[in-house]
Amino acid sequence: MKPPPFLYCRPRAVDEALAVLAEHGDEARPLAGGQSLVPMLNHRLARPGVLVDIGAITELQRMERRASDWLIGATVTQRRVERHSLEGCELLSLAVPFIGHRQIRARGTVGGSIAHADPAAELPAVALTVDATMVAAGRDGQRAIGASSFFAGPYMNSLADGEILSHVIFPVLPSTTRCSFKEFARRKGDFAVAGVAAAVDITDRVVSKARLTAFAIGSNPVRLPGAEGAIVGRSLDAADLDTAAEAAAAEIEPWDDIHGSPRYRRQIVAALLQRALQEVAP
């Protein structure tokens, strides 16, 4: 399990990285924390001709609270997010501890995880739930991509050739928004068998807005409009939870792997969604 041969460079600036990517086209691939890419290299499942290590580019390591959002550079490590609880980004803080183990989070990056678009990964689900914005850097400048159009299938994103993910903008949610993140993995730190993320606005003890997401059930995380619709205007009592869970189980199209059949994944999503909604109920 040794990587195949490749060329390597470690640019210090985004422009430098973009220049190399442009020059080498499909052959080149950016390397952030490497916690997914290096295992793929070791398995020889990835065979880039050129690895562009973006780990030394300081402008990608920014983490800033702005007026109504957080700007998180692509190579900010998950550990750094874990250490600073980001005010207004509760869902992100809830989700990060589920990513791998401490050793993985020490190297794994926010942008790397989102760009990698692993169907079972936590951060894409968070991004989708809170409508985060992915900002791509290309030779023609920057381009914002909404979460709903960023994920383009399993391990696929909608970055164009030669672009890299520069940073992610997580909106700061109002204090009336309650969040919950639940995932079921066979062991702590394993990829989820299924998971749900919830950001629910409560006004006058009823749900005024609901953003619910299921992940690890198919190509990409998906919002649960049926379940969302079922709880808006409701007080989240036991019957509401049942209705939402049934709606979620019905509206997803889970896939099959050795850890669970579609039927089993529906059951887990239903159970996890109930628990998540219980947690955010007024």
């Binding site: 079921f184 049942d242 089993y264 887990i268 239903a270």
Partner: peptide
């Protein structure tokens, strides 16, 4: 006795 196997022993809600 994986969770999927066990869950299949339990009737739905």
């Amino acid at each position: 006795l994986s969770p999927a196997v066990v869950r299949a022993m339990i009737p739905d809600r």
